[in-house]
Amino acid sequence: MEQELFQVMKPGVQTTFQDLGRKGYQQFGVPVSGAMDKFALQVANILLGNSRTSPCLEITLIGPNLVAKSSMTIVITGANLNPTCNGEPIDMWKTVRIEKGDELAFGKHESGVRAYLAVAGGFEAPKYFGSSSVDGNSGFGKPLEKGDTIKGYPITVASGISLASSLIPSYEKKITVSLVEGPHTDYFAKKDRETFFAVPYKVGSNSNRMGYRLEGETIKPEKVEVWSDGIPFGGIQITSGGEPIILMADRQTTGGYPRIGTVFSTDLPRVAQLIPGGEICFRPSSIEEAEEKVRKEEQFLHRLEQFRQHIERRK
């Protein structure tokens, strides 16, 4: 049954509903959007027994202040923004029961950038082309505002279900990610490609859900003219000035800059959690290794999902 879940006292800097994104409409120019850190979003849903694709609130650096209008079970995953309930710290990556009238708040940023708040039973969030992901550039939904009421379909599930601490990702300020090279490898001089893989880049402050602008050694393409083509999540385009941009969740569907490579999809959560000023190094690798990692991650999430269903049945 639809119920009021939260009253928004403070919205936070950028708090939006996100799920796994819009699929199937890119040929019409509709961006995929969706969670920046799909791993944290899916684990949040799985721990609560929700469908993996359910929308969660993606909370960015400075979190919202929410008052519960019903009792419910929640979980917070992703970035550690020091969440509290009535001023008391609450565990992350662990299902927690909160009562009507409780105040959920976020404090000082500890690690990562984006936290995910999920509710057992799921949120009520408007869908556009099959997805609840807010994409302001395309006119699909908007971030939370002060005074909003968040609705959902709360159900009672077990609290205290958590991810083993060894499995909880740590979000470093210096990361190395793997990538598959191409498709415009021949647009760059050999020496520039070597530079790209040898030096660290710094995440610029004007990085957002569309793309991460990287500061460091510029690698000017030898040709700039590229006919627009489809651009994937994690594609690294190089501007005519030689600055790399990692294309993120809200990227457009097509682009016209040369691309030097595509970050492994399993490395994207760590990119999404890298704060402005953080450092990133790139390692060239193979498509075979990239696919192997996706399969392993999918197996992990699938097993976690089955394990979670088992817990509920045992009760």
Partner: peptide, 17 residues
């Protein structure tokens, strides 16, 4: 999962698992 036509390309997205 989906296809995106470009000027001289088709970008085809698939599920690696």
């Amino acid at each position: 999962t989906e296809l995106v036509p470009g000027y001289h390309t088709i970008t085809l997205y698939y599920e690696p698992f």
